[in-house]
Structures are given as C-alpha cells and as structure tokens.
Amino acid sequence: MTVTVKPVRRRKASFLDRLYLPAIAKGLSITFMRMFKPKVTMQFPEERWTVRDEYRGMPVLVSDDEGRPKCVACSLCEFVCPPKAIFIVPDELEAGNNVERGPAVFDLNMLRCIYCGLCEEACPEEAIFMSKNYLVWGAEREDMIFHKDKLYELGGVREEGVKKWKDK
C-alpha cells in the first residue's frame, strides 16, 4: 500500500497563539456575550411558522361554497399516489345531488403519505388540495389514517376552482 503525501502549508503560530491563554480568554468572552444576544428559538405551539404559498402540507378534501363535497370518487388520486396512501370506495349518491358519484370511503394514510402533491395535480375536480397544515399527529397508528369526514373537516370550503357539475 502506498501513501500519497500531500503537503499542506500551515500558518506559523504566533507567540500569542502559543500562549493559548489569550485565545481561550477571547473564546470565553465570545460565548459569554452570546448569552445576552436575542434568541432565535420559536416557541412552537404558541408561535407558528408562516408557510409560503408553495408549501405542501397534508392533503385534504374540500367542499364548495354551498358546502357540498367536490370529490367524485374518480380514483385518479388513488391511482397516481406513489406510496399508495389513498384508498377510495366509490358510491352512488342519492338523488338531488348535482353529481351521481361520490366516495363512500376515502382513507388517507398519513403514515405513508410523502407529501408529493401528485393527488392534487391529478384531481380533475380540484377536490383534493395540499393544505398548509404541517401538524399531523396521532396517538396510535389508527389515528394516523384520516377518514373522509376528517379530511372534509380539515379542508373546509374552497370557492374558486372547478365547478362544472354546478352548471348542469
């Protein structure tokens, strides 16, 4: 085995450097002064980050301005989801709704979700959105599987966007 030696030029330590003590005193004074500098820590539950518009938080389902669910259970998001976090059982909605289709079951497994945003891209009805919500928690594994009602509740109302079914 050969050893390749690469010469590195070192600065010659000055006499003060060799005494070490001035450097130590300087270091101590720096750390001491830092104690009185403003702190950068954010007190999380009370203070929150203001997230940017591009931020992709937890995916949620939205309703229109009349409070009607927008999802038509086309299963495109289920199909496109890379980690297979979405599980949909389509169902027929009762008469009186403007659309005939809707999800009977819409489960979003937040243990699997990778926040890629492909579901939002794929959705033809603009029914699923990446929210700004980064606070996803659960005490048990079951709690981390979000069901339809919870997703609609988190999503709330979104007025803009596709409303083609309303014109029928």
Binding site: F32, M35, T41
Partner: peptide, 10 residues
C-alpha cells in the same frame, strides 16, 4: 439552559 443561551437558543 446556559449552553442554549450560548448558542442563541432558549
């Protein structure tokens, strides 16, 4: 606490 203060933390 002190180490946090010295590192601009709380």
């Amino acid at each position: 606490r002190v180490s946090a203060w010295m590192q601009d933390r709380i």
